[in-house]
């Protein structure tokens, strides 16, 4: 298996991109495991370039209104609401 150096700062960076807080123990564990797993992913280098057939085509349909969730249904699972809105954390 080829060397894939992964350091704790990389794991912290990716975790911040993914918006997942990690404690130090998780950072250590993931650093070790990711080196293993990404090292294994390296074997993808051996895959030849393959001509991919474009087998997908766009399918259109008319844009018609139909019944959706009521406001009450849409809000029923929210941890917090205010005046019929979702309540979220501040933006900055």
């Amino acid at each position: 298996m080829s060397e894939t150096p992964v350091d704790p700062d990389q794991v912290r960076h990716v975790a911040s991109l993914a918006r997942v807080s990690l404690d130090e123990e998780e950072v250590t564990e993931f650093t070790e495991q990711f080196a293993d797993i990404l090292g294994y992913f390296e074997t993808l280098d051996e895959v030849p370039e393959v001509e991919r057939e474009p087998e997908l085509t766009n399918v259109m349909r008319p844009d018609e209104g139909r019944a959706g969730l009521s406001q009450e249904e849409a809000l029923q699972n929210a941890p917090d609401t205010e005046d019929g809105h979702f309540k979220g954390p501040r933006v900055s």
């Binding site: 911040s16 997942v20 998780e26 941890p79």
Partner: peptide, 30 residues
């Protein structure tokens, strides 16, 4: 925000979302 474990309201939304996901997701999902 719309469903799931709330990350609370301390700090900005990036911090709140990251806390919600720290709490709500197990190790394999993370």
């Amino acid at each position: 925000v719309r469903y799931g474990v709330s990350g609370g309201y301390d700090g900005d939304w990036n911090e709140a979302f990251a806390r919600a996901r720290e709490e709500g997701f197990g190790p394999e999902v993370k």
